[in-house]
Design a protein around this nucleic acid. Structure first.
Length: 284
DNA sequence: ATGGTTGTCATACAA
């Protein structure tokens, strides 16, 4: 056997798919860590955010040489940037603008016919604006931009119905929507990423798009789940003041196929780490 | 209440 695609039947139909999301905070600086993760976790698809890399400088070869031959990128100089690395071919790819800015914060791919039972699956990769420090849209235009972006995600879910077919939405959504998505609900209530208005808007986007929060379905509250720990902590392990900012949602028709999710916490302790860790979901 | 770190690109700015 030795299939590169994980669990396959004899006809080659895809029986299982593992998808991962990771805010890498510079793909060029951390290409080595991406390769380490790909070799260890072996996802079929990895969605990256904050690549901080113009498309003509993206290190395609680093990932092609270890089996990720299908790569879709939408990057810009210095800031933002998203990418999809895949062992499976794409039929199409596209990018969408949100909240009236040309920021590279979204890319989607559709799997080709070779993907067996998951042929046609659409993967949306998002990088929602962080929103600055002050949780007031009047005083802080970055927060206003974040709220507008979340509102537009809701409208998109309602109007374009991206989850009306087999689809997965992943990314750094920069909101920890549930009480147990932060180390202290009480101490985080006025901190950007966990304010009620952001949580409400993210939940409205899930609802209007008929998405299912796959990670929380498999690991329900009150278990605390974090995917990000600040660089500013003197000791991130000891303080453990994390937040769940990185998410994987699936369309309703995939909700019965959720098999396993993992938050790769160890990656936060790797050398020169990103402040986010990878999250994986397996559907079968 | 404050400052704490990191990456990019060159000096502050975003996170």
């Amino acid at each position: 056997m030795g299939s590169a695609l994980g669990l396959n039947d004899q006809a080659g139909a895809l029986m299982a798919l593992t998808i991962a999301t990771w805010n890498i905070n510079s793909v060029r600086l951390r290409s080595g860590l991406v390769q380490k993760f790909l070799k260890e976790a072996k996802p079929d698809i990895l969605c990256l955010q904050e690549t901080k890399c113009p498309d003509d400088q993206f290190p395609h070869g680093d990932f092609r040489k270890i089996g990720y031959g299908h790569i879709a990128v939408s990057g810009q100089k210095g800031y933002h940037g998203v990418a999809v690395l895949s062992r499976l071919p794409f039929a199409t790819q596209s990018v969408k603008q949100f909240a009236g800015k040309a920021d590279c914060r979204h890319i989607s791919v559709e799997l080709s016919e070779n993907a067996g039972s998951l042929a046609g699956l659409v993967v949306h990769n998002f990088y929602v604006p962080a929103g600055g420090d002050i949780p007031d849209p009047e005083a802080n235009e970055k927060f206003a931009h974040k709220l507008a972006f979340l509102d537009e995600m809701k409208q998109w879910g309602k109007k374009d119905k991206p989850a009306s077919k087999k689809a997965v939405l992943v990314g750094d959504l920069n909101v920890a929507p549930l009480e147990h998505d932060v180390w202290s609900h009480k101490q985080m209530i006025d901190v950007v990423s966990h304010t009620p208005i952001e949580c409400d808007k993210l939940n409205a986007a899930i609802k209007s798009g008929k998405w299912v929060d796959a990670v929380r379905t498999l690991k329900p509250e009150p278990e605390k789940l974090f995917t990000w720990w600040s660089y500013r902590a003197a000791d991130w392990v000891a303080s453990n003041r994390g937040r769940r900012l990185d998410h994987i949602w699936v369309s309703e028709d995939l909700a019965g196929s959720l098999k396993k999710t993992e938050i790769h916490r160890d990656a936060r302790g790797w050398e020169r780490p990103s402040d986010h860790v990878p999250v994986t979901l397996t559907i079968a």
